[in-house]
Each structure stands twice: as structure tokens, then as C-alpha cells.
Amino acid sequence: MATPDDDYDTPWKNAVLRYFPEFMAFYFPQAHAAIDWSRPHVFLDQELAQLVRDGELGRRRLDKLVRLATLAGGEQWVLLHLEVQGRRENAFAERIFCYNYRVYDRYRRPVASLVVLADRGACWRPSSFSYKLFGCRMGIDFPVVKLMDYAGRIEPLLDDPNPFALLTAAHLLTRQTKGLAHRRRMAKWRLTKLLYQRQWDRQRIIDLYSVIDWLMRLPPEMEARLWQGIVQMERRKLMPYLTYGERLGRKMGLEQGLREGFMEGRQEGQQLLLSQQLNKRFGPLPAALAERLAQADSEQLTGWAMALLDAASLDEVFGSK
């Protein structure tokens, strides 16, 4: 039985945003040791988007640009390219060079480009770009982490307390079980049980399970079986972490989950779930929309929930009226 197509890039973004210090500690410990974590770090997504629009770089884009302070004093702009090549790209190193220079040209501050390679190959390791002309040399060397290097260390990863060790294991197990749905279900179940065994707060467990769930996609019938096991485990441990509302908050799994939850006929649950998702996406609902939500039937709620998947505003969910 085949597994659904895998998505290796998107889930990492939210995890990095929420747990950036842990990300740096696991993948780039030398840089982590040089950062002053007592001072805030700021993700500059809007500034980054402007930089890319201004440059003639086509679809090239940075994933994250972070402003932070170093223990040596001053500020350092760190460029993290985390979309991180799920596949080989011939011009990748040149692209890192272009990004690095454009950030420096804009801010005139030191820039560090840090790269994680999540592709399947073992030999592709771009870590520099340079050229020479008339005695002039221009170029960049940048640190690279290759996730495939951890492939023989799954068990140590599962014992490591850093959350990105667990996510690295999830990524590798996703690669290893492509097309092997039963093995993937067993691996996903093991990772889920490990989450419950860690002495982490509820939000961290929810966040990390979201990434694991997104990475390790299963056929619907196996997903339902796994979910039944999670519900039973929560009941035994009295630890209701991974609720339907939390699980359905992700776009990739929302449609299937809505069908499963809505088929139970619990209209109040439908209203509560949709209200939570709308509040999280767009902020508190205006009174008029909250009233419409309270009076809607199951069919209306389902339609709005489906519209929420791609909506950029409340108008696109409820209609312009």
C-alpha cells in the first residue's frame, strides 16, 4: 500500500520559528555558543520578502532572516535557508552567495548563511561558491548540515532530549518508509509514544506532533487506526494533548479530519472547532460573524471550514456580505 506524497519542507518552518534556540543548538552548536540568548532574536520575514522582490532572483527566496546579538557584542544577521533543499539543485551554492550579499548590501552588517540539506543523496554537499577574475576573488563558504548523515543514528536521536533530534528522526524515518505504509505507521506510533514520555509542556508536544504528523502522512485507514491508539493512550494517561482541534489546525490534514469529526453529528463541536481555527487565523471574530457561526447548520459549517483552507481573509471564508 502506497503512502501519500511526502512534504519535507513546510513543517520545519513553524518548528524553527517556535524553537529557534534548540534548532541552533542541535544543528549548529558552534554558532549557538556564540549567540547572546539573553537578548531577543527577531525574524525579519517582511524585510526578507522585500529583499527578494527587489532582486532579480526569480523564484529564489530566503526562508528565514534572523536578527540577533552575539556574545562578542553588536548584532549579527543570520540567514537560514531551511526550505532546505529536499532535492539537488545545481545553482544552490550560487543562490546562497546571492542571498548573503543582498542581505549585507541592505543592512551593512555581518551575515552568516547556514544551510540544512534534507535531500536523499549522500554525496551532494554544496558548501561554497566563488569566482576569480584579474586577480580578484569573490565567494562564500557556509556551514552545511546533512540530515542523511544521521541515518545510521536513529536510536541515539530518539534518546536525545533536543526536540530537533526527534524531528530529524521523523524526517529520516519518513524517507526510509516511503511506499511502506505499515512500517511508517509503526514508526509514527513509536515517535508519538515518545512525545508522551517526555516531560514537555502541552504546547511543545502539540507543536512537535504537528510536524511529525505532517511529515509522516499515511493512507486514511491507517491514519484513523493510529488516531484511535492516540485517543486510547490519552485516556489511560489522562493527558489530553493532541485534541481534534489541535490536529485539525494544519492545512494538510484538515479536510480529512473535518470529514471524520463532522460525521459524528456534533454540531456544537463543529462550531467550537471552526471558531477556534478562525480566531487563531484572523483574531477575534466580529459579533455579527460569531452570531452567524452560532446559528449555522452542519452543511454551512462544513462549507466555511473548507473555505478556510485557502482563505486570506474572513470575507473569503464567509463571503463578502
Rank of each mutant, 00 (worst) to 15 (best):
T3Q: 05
T3C: 07
W12M: 05
W12R: 11
P29L: 07
P29T: 13
A31P: 00
A33H: 12
W37D: 07
S38W: 02
P40G: 04
F43N: 12
L44G: 02
L44F: 07
L51G: 15
V52D: 00
R53S: 07
R53E: 00
E56C: 12
G58T: 08
R60Y: 08
R60H: 13
R61F: 13
D63W: 04
K64E: 00
V66N: 06
R67H: 11
L71Q: 13
G73M: 06
W77E: 02
H81Q: 15
E83V: 03
G86I: 10
R87W: 08
R88F: 05
E89S: 04
E94W: 11
I96P: 01
N100K: 11
Y101T: 01
Y101V: 02
D105L: 04
Y107K: 03
R108L: 08
V111F: 09
V111H: 02
A112T: 10
L114Y: 04
V116N: 04
D119P: 09
R120F: 09
A122R: 01
W124M: 04
W124I: 00
P126M: 01
S127C: 12
S128K: 06
C136E: 14
R137W: 02
M138G: 07
M138K: 14
G139R: 13
I140L: 15
V145I: 09
M148C: 12
M148A: 15
D149Q: 11
Y150F: 15
E155S: 06
L158C: 05
D159R: 13
A165W: 14
A165V: 03
L166R: 12
H171Q: 11
L172A: 08
T174K: 14
Q176N: 07
Q176P: 04
T177E: 03
K178R: 13
R185G: 00
R185L: 14
R190Q: 14
R202M: 12
R202P: 09
R204F: 03
I205E: 12
I205Y: 00
W214H: 14
L218W: 04
P219T: 02
P220R: 03
E221S: 07
M222H: 13
A224G: 07
R225L: 08
R225N: 00
R225P: 00
W227A: 11
V231K: 13
Q232K: 09
E234H: 10
K237E: 15
G245W: 12
E246T: 10
E246L: 10
R247F: 02
L248C: 14
L248W: 08
G249L: 08
Q256D: 08
G257A: 07
M263N: 12
G265L: 03
R266N: 12
Q267I: 05
G269E: 14
Q270M: 15
Q271T: 12
S275H: 08
L278R: 08
N279M: 10
K280F: 12
K280E: 12
G283C: 05
G283V: 02
A288P: 03
R292F: 10
Q295G: 00
M306A: 13
M306E: 11
M306S: 11
L308F: 03
L308E: 05
D310N: 14
D310H: 14
D310W: 06
L314W: 01
D315R: 09
G319I: 01
